[in-house]
């Protein structure tokens, strides 16, 4: 579908909300399968926080858009090209090491992002950011601990975690990319200069990797495209599962 020119404000909120929602959905896939009970609880709690953030962000996006779409409409009735989540968060769970590596890279980013968004001229967004910042920092404490524990753990856990980082590293540059939507939102005082967060993110991540005896990957490839709705093949499968029920039974209530 060829979408008409969209409002950058709406687009910006969609990006934030979509990343939280898709990662929340990914974590929910661990339900009943986590390696230990404590981690089952942790992954579900983190996923719920993220889905809660997504609800706030998407319902705000729907209001800004003004076309009558609420959070559910946005979550369940958009096709893959209309999604704006970062490619990193749609990557498959893989093993526990990969899930935690993805989480750590994202948590560290999201904490910085919310810290800056707390000063947004969009007061609703600023309020959501203040509230969610606490959650993001708590999540990061957890994923950081696992990086240290697995990286500096057994040979098996170290190898798996290093492999996971190598697989995910090519999705990192996209976190800090900026396009005309970002520029418009910075100019309006609503958005933040994401690129300016790169140095701080790098130093935080590198510090943990080095303490965990892990190597900063040098993979020589990077992909992006989520801002234009270009995704990896994994997102379609995730959406098919997440959206099945409301699409099969539109307007069903329970």
């Amino acid at each position: 579908m060829n979408r008409p020119e969209t409002d950058p404000h709406f687009e910006y909120l969609l990006r934030l909300g979509d990343s939280s929602l898709i990662l929340g959905q990914r974590l929910a896939e661990w339900c009943g399968k986590a390696p230990i009970l404590e981690e089952e609880l942790a992954l579900m709690n983190i996923g719920l926080d993220l889905i809660g953030q997504a609800r706030l962000l998407l319902s705000h996006a729907g209001q800004v858009e003004g076309r009558g779409r609420d959070e559910d409409r946005l979550a369940f009735f958009r096709d893959v090209q209309e999604w704006r989540n970062l490619l990193l968060v749609e990557q498959e769970n893989g093993d526990f090491a990969k899930t935690m590596a993805r989480q750590f890279l994202f948590d560290t980013f999201q904490g910085l992002q919310y810290r800056e968004l707390a000063a947004s001229a969009d007061s609703t967004l600023a309020e959501i950011a203040v509230k969610s910042l606490k959650e993001a920092e708590y999540h990061q404490r957890h994923s950081r601990n696992w990086m240290l524990r697995m990286g500096d753990g057994t040979e098996e856990s170290h190898t798996r975690l290093q492999k996971a980082l190598d697989e995910l590293w090519g999705y990192v540059p996209e976190l800090f990319e900026m396009d005309e939507v970002d520029q418009a939102m910075i100019a309006a005082g609503i958005g933040i200069d994401t690129n300016a967060l790169r140095a701080e993110w790098d130093s935080r991540v590198r510090e943990v990797l080095s303490e965990a005896t892990l190597t900063v990957p040098d993979v020589g490839w990077a992909v992006s495209g989520s801002r234009k709705g270009q995704h990896t093949e994994h997102l379609g499968y995730l959406l098919a599962e997440m959206q099945f029920l409301p699409r099969a039974y539109p307007d069903a209530r329970w």
Binding site: E38, E39, L41, A42, D49, Y138, R141, H142
Partner: peptide, 13 residues
């Protein structure tokens, strides 16, 4: 601390 996360969002074990 056994786990940062408990049976509900507000609790740790």
């Amino acid at each position: 601390l056994v786990s940062q996360f408990g049976s509900t969002a507000c609790k740790a074990l």
